[in-house]
Design a protein around this nucleic acid. Structure first.
Lengths: 217, 217, 217, 217
DNA sequence: AATGAATGAGTATTCATTCAT
DNA sequence: TATGAATGAATACTCATTCAT
């Protein structure tokens, strides 16, 4: 019932924080609550309490629970993308870029212990805008990886690359869960191990593709 | 008249169906509703309507909505296990068994268009008994695959095998989603493609494990 | 908090009343509450309390507050129509029918002290289905009166008749309010007085219409 | 610099408009919003937005939503009264004054397309001060008309005159609605038609009253 | 075995209203 | 004078769950 986060400089009264800041506080609280209890399990009131404000503000700022959820997804998805973009070097060879991306992904998951994974799992089922948004992002990621694979093999993206991309992304997601259950796992190690596991198959796949394309030409 | 089987002799009650049958009808209805609308989205009333019965029966048979959900998960999980068990031959070499299992899995998902995948995604987030149950099953599957991998490599299961198993299962799940979005995909083909992709890496991994174990011995 | 109307034959527990009966109880309670506090002023919870039941039943039976309101309007409008229909004799001359209708109207308002007048005023502003419904009924009434006027004057309905009908209906509504403020007023007397007031003008109007129509012919 | 009128010398505040003007702006906005959406349908925020100011100003100037509503009613009622007063000539015979008043009323309604009618209907149900105020005004109007009727008949106001006044006012209100639905209707014509319709009955009524009073004397 | 009737306990959402600046 | 930030209090609506028959 009492606010939990009111700045320490004054009583528990209203805090008068500028809009942009409050927005982030609310998103922080939302991610926490959604991650802990799920979309349905987390009540708007609860979220407000965590943020140290009152319910109406949430509606004032975000309009509805679902829009709030979508805003969470967007922010976290953006952060993930930023993290990856910050690690991948365009001048690296495609293969190298791929492993960098993996590393970025696992690092992100590791740093944001659970929040994103859970939000992500939630969002993929929820239906509505959040699902569309997350599915779109996942789709783009898969396409991107498919292209990297193709480039790594100096070939055009074919059905094998698409399938491999799906498989690789699924493997990442599963290992992310695993990392969360084994907190002392190192993201970089995980990325390297996955690459050891995936690379031989990928390169063989690519080789075949290349051969086939040569044959067709 | 006093016979136990006189079924038409009383009140306005409906069909007087034996317990086992009713139970299956209810589970069918539940799977349909949960798959379509999610755990929260599917109402008990709706499920009862689909099953052609009244709400109290559901509580009489299953006690609560969550127990009903768990029962769904159990039945479908059992069916998946049966499907796989029916395909894997114990006398086959471990490697072969692995691909057979994949084939069984994809065939199941393909035959039960979405229902299980969705239930499964639902259950993994839901929290409570359903989550425990599904996670347990998933864990056992991963262990099993780890063992198969190890046996295929004539080695003891090590950390690489565990990680590989996680990756492989994740890849399967992701490809299952993909299959559902591309309904004309053949399960057997998908299984074979995944094996082409995964095998080189696995065999290399196993080789390394073997080498290391030889060294340790 | 405790039910007010539970039958006296047993405790305050659930009453197990058949659907049709409950429906009427709910409508009774609604009319009472809406009449006393207006559409917005009356809460669904309050209505439920008056009816001696719980909120969800109202939604189970009527779907929404507005539909409940519409159902009230419909029932009361129907009753008014029945009352009038029960008083007007088709074999009477048109003029006589008109005064009978007035009498029926005032009697209804007097018997249903306020409820209908208030509901009616509410409904005409509320917007949405209730407004449409009441406006439609009012429109039909005005048309009907226009026809009676015309028939009483052995003429075709012309613009004067339409206007006169509107004026007459407005006069009725206003006098209904007045009756409600002066409870010892006799409905029949009011009807007769109104007829005394309105008839001379009407007959003159009709005469003119007749003359004009003769001229046109 | 210390002058009271330096209006451009401070902070980010907006327009610095004198009180009287602001008040009218707010009332304009309120009438618009209340007429369009009803008392409950119109939000204070919305009104502030239409007026181009912020919510707290409204509270600063009017204290509460209801007081704002009452202020609207008062202003519009005053305008109506002014309109009528501007048309009625005290030196005219009572009968003539009556028709002038009608003309003034219909002209007002026609010029203020709907706003007042709607406000008026709203106010009569709302309950509270606004209802009291509008009812009082309506009562005064009816009394006035009753007196005019009596004077026109050279008699003391009796119960028939009261009733006739109520009927006449109701007829006016109803025709006002009708005019609003038929925007090309001429107010003066409407007034004249109503007078044609009402006068014969009124004069007869008055005659009877006169006769009775003579008899009593 | 089966159900129509009923509800307790929530949940998202809105709105008039007020501080602090 | 004027407002951005904030909230208390209410309200419509839903859903899993249980009696009474």
């Amino acid at each position: 019932m009492t606010s939990q986060k009111s700045a320490a400089s004054h009583g528990p009264g209203k805090a008068r924080v500028p809009r942009a800041v409050r927005e982030q506080q609310m998103l922080d609280a939302s991610v926490e609550a959604f991650a802990a209890n799920g979309y349905h399990g987390a009540g708007v009131e609860e979220i407000a309490a965590i943020a140290g404000i009152s319910k109406p503000m949430i509606y004032l700022y975000f309009g509805s629970k679902e829009e709030l959820f979508v805003a969470c997804i967007r922010r976290e998805a953006g952060r993930l993308m930023d993290m990856i973009a910050g690690v991948v070097r365009a001048e690296d060879p495609a293969e190298r870029q791929l492993w960098s991306a993996l590393e970025g992904f696992f690092t992100f998951v590791s740093d944001h212990r659970g929040a994103w994974t859970v939000l992500y799992r939630q969002a993929r089922i929820q239906g509505g805008q959040s699902t569309r948004e997350v599915d779109a992002m996942r789709g783009r990621t898969i396409d991107l990886i498919g292209e990297l694979l193709a480039r790594a093999a100096s070939s055009e993206p074919g059905p094998e690359a698409v399938m491999a991309a799906h498989a690789l992304v699924g493997a990442c997601e599963s290992l992310a869960d695993w990392m969360l259950d084994n907190p002392d796992t190192d993201p970089k190690t995980t990325a390297k191990q996955l690459s050891h596991f995936a690379w031989p198959g990928l390169s063989k796949l690519m080789e075949a593709t290349r051969a086939r394309q040569r044959g067709e030409a």
